[in-house]
C-alpha cells in the first residue's frame, strides 16, 4: 500500500480514536483501533509497510494528543518490530493469529505505557492497570479486531480465512 494511504488511514484512525470512539464506551473502556490497524498493516502489507505505519501513527498520536513527544512512537515501533520479526512465520489466514496478536499487542502497549509513566512520575497502580484497563480493553479489542482483521484479509488477500 502506498505511503500516502498509510498516512491518511493512520490520521483517520487517530481522529476517530480521540473523538467518535468516545461515544461507544462500554464500562468506561474504548477499543484501541490504532493497535488493530497496526496489526493489519504489518501482517497484510508486509513488515516495511508496518514499520512505516507505526512511525506515522506514533508521530500523529503524539502530536495530536500525546503526553510526551515520542511515547506512542516508541511503543508502536516496538510493537511493529516484534510483529515484523514474526510476520513471515505466522499463518496469516488462521483465526488464532489475530486473537493472539491483539492480546499480546494490547498487553505490550499498556505495559510500556505504564513503565514510561513510572519513569516519568515514579508511581504506578497495578490493580487499576490490570482490571480497570487491560482486561476490559483486551476483550473489546478482540471483539472489534477479529472482525476488522477478517474483513481486511478478505479484501486485500482475496480469499476467506480458515
Amino acid at each position: 500500500m502506498k505511503d500516502r494511504y498509510l498516512v491518511l488511514i493512520s490520521l483517520v484512525m487517530v481522529l476517530v480514536q480521540t473523538t467518535l470512539l468516545q461515544a461507544i464506551r462500554i464500562g468506561d473502556v474504548i477499543p484501541n483501533i490504532m493497535l488493530i490497524w497496526l496489526i493489519i498493516a504489518i501482517v497484510l502489507f508486509g513488515r516495511y509497510a508496518g514499520i512505516k505505519t507505526a512511525i506515522y501513527a506514533g508521530v500523529l498520536t503524539d502530536v495530536i494528543i500525546g503526553k510526551g513527544l515520542g511515547t506512542h512512537l516508541l511503543i508502536y515501533l516496538t510493537i511493529a518490530s516484534i510483529i515484523a520479526l514474526l510476520e513471515e512465520k505466522i499463518f496469516k489466514d488462521n483465526y488464532i493469529t489475530p486473537v493472539v496478536l491483539i492480546i499480546a499487542t494490547t498487553a505490550l502497549f499498556h505495559t510500556m505505557f505504564l513503565f514510561i509513566d513510572y519513569f516519568a512520575n515514579g508511581d504506578i497502580h497495578i490493580v487499576r492497570f490490570l482490571f480497570g484497563i487491560l482486561l476490559p480493553e483486551v476483550i473489546y479489542n478482540l471483539a472489534i479486531g477479529v472482525v476488522a482483521y477478517t474483513t481486511a484479509f478478505r479484501i486485500f488477500m482475496g480469499y476467506q480465512m480458515r
Binding site: 480514536q17 480521540t18 484501541n32 500525546g66 480493553e137
Partner: peptide, 14 residues
C-alpha cells in the same frame, strides 16, 4: 473539548 485520551486512562484531552 475537541479530543480525548486515545487510551483508557482519561489523563489528557484537547
Amino acid at each position: 473539548v475537541v479530543a480525548r485520551d486515545p487510551g483508557n486512562w482519561y489523563g489528557m484531552f484537547v
